Simulated scan of single mutants.
Amino acid sequence: MDVLVIGGSGFIGVRLCTELSNRDHEVIAVSRSPDDSELPGDVDTEMGDVTAYDSLSGLFDDIDVVYNLVALSPLFKPSGGDEMHDIVHRQGTENIVRAAEANNVSQLVQLSALGADPDGTTAYVRAKGRAETAVTESDSDLDSTIFRPSVVFGDGGEFISFTKLLAPPYVSALPGGGKTRFQPIWVDDLVPMLADAVETDTHHGEIYEIGGPERLTLAEIAQMIHTADGRSTTILPVPMSLAKIGLTVGDLIPGFPMGVDQYRSLQFDNVTDKNNIDAFARTVDDLTTLEAYLSGETDYEADTRVPA
């Protein structure tokens, strides 16, 4: 099949393009700044911006499947403010659906997020929910598959570096004592499922919640990460009311990486109601734990970068 991967130069996109290429699909990776340095030689690259329909419309000719992987991180306050979530996620998806409909694309795979809800608590989950609505309410014969993963970790990802920023070694002052739960999934466990979705029509019209093999609190994750680095950390609980004040002030400071939306996100667990990995013939025993990744039991080294 001819496959267009929008966001193909990103953390998940590079791996997905490689997986699809290895399965003998013809793949085009689309991004605002195309970079083929990490892509297989048979994967083509094109420039496209989801917020600008005209930059996309000419890329959909003779395409069978489109993946929309484009996303702003929910972990950090976006440059331009929280309204950027709506511009990139909702409006960007609407542009993709419009281009797919105009070119008779048969299938769209949408990478969404756990908790996506048009009326959700954070700007991120609202925009993700409205993006899903744009996909499911398409008037064409466009078949869709929506994935809602928990946080995704792996080499080149930002979840581990974000945790180190939020919870530094030795003493970590965490909102609510770090009791928010996550279900981290390794990127190289997620990507094959994304690829499987286009190889049988049984996934058409489905929405899948996808998580890793464990449900871990933020405090447990922080301690696990620092232990892997040969350090320790003591969790110092910060009342959520104080965290709200601090991150509200942070919203007003240019360049401060977090704000009120991040505070709101920490009030809710990021875990599946039902982990739908069984739809792809996987069990939790097939998945890589965060601890196994951090200890080097995978093919990739842990990401140790801390954002500037």
Rank of each mutant, 00 (worst) to 15 (best):
T217N: 15
E46C: 12
L236R: 10
F147A: 05
L4M: 09
P118N: 09
S21P: 07
R305K: 06
A308R: 12
C17W: 05
R130Y: 03
D143S: 14
L294A: 13
D61K: 05
E46V: 15
L59V: 11
P74M: 07
L75S: 15
D139N: 11
S55F: 06
G120V: 12
A100W: 00
L108I: 15
L75W: 11
L39D: 11
V191L: 05
P239M: 11
I253S: 12
D285T: 14
D229N: 14
L39G: 13
R23C: 04
D2I: 01
Q223V: 12
D201W: 10
I12W: 02
A113P: 00
I146G: 00
N22A: 14
N104T: 10
R264P: 00
R305S: 13
N270Y: 02
V105Y: 02
V152T: 10
Y67W: 07
N103Y: 01
R264Q: 13
A243Q: 06
T122W: 01
R90M: 13
D303K: 03
E209C: 15
E297H: 10
G205R: 01
G250W: 02
L218G: 12
G157C: 12
G157M: 12
Q91T: 15
T18P: 07
E137M: 13
V271G: 06
V171F: 09
K164N: 11
G296H: 09
L194W: 01
E46F: 08
D24N: 15
G259C: 09
N270S: 14
F268W: 06
V191M: 03
D139G: 12
F11C: 12
F60V: 13
G154N: 15
E297L: 08
L16G: 00
T202R: 03
A127K: 02
F162P: 02
S31Q: 12
S161K: 06
N22F: 06
A195G: 14
I12C: 05
K77E: 08
F147P: 00
P192I: 05
L4D: 02
G7S: 04
D24P: 04
Q91F: 10
V5S: 13
S140I: 07
R181M: 13
G211N: 04
R148L: 14
G255P: 02
R32P: 15
S73F: 06
V187K: 04
G230C: 10
V135T: 07
V187Q: 05
F153Y: 15
L111S: 01
P184M: 06
E132Q: 08
Y67G: 09
L111E: 01
S295G: 04
T233C: 09
V3Q: 00
S73Y: 06
R90N: 14
A292P: 00
G259H: 09
T133L: 08
N276V: 08
Y53K: 14
A197L: 11
S57E: 12
M224F: 03
A197S: 15
C17H: 10
T145S: 02
G13T: 01
V5L: 15
G58M: 04
Q223E: 13
G154A: 14
A52G: 10
S138F: 09
H226N: 13
R282P: 06
D273N: 15
L266V: 10
T122S: 08
H89M: 06
V306F: 03
D286P: 05
S57D: 09
D196W: 04
T202A: 11
E301S: 12
D86C: 07
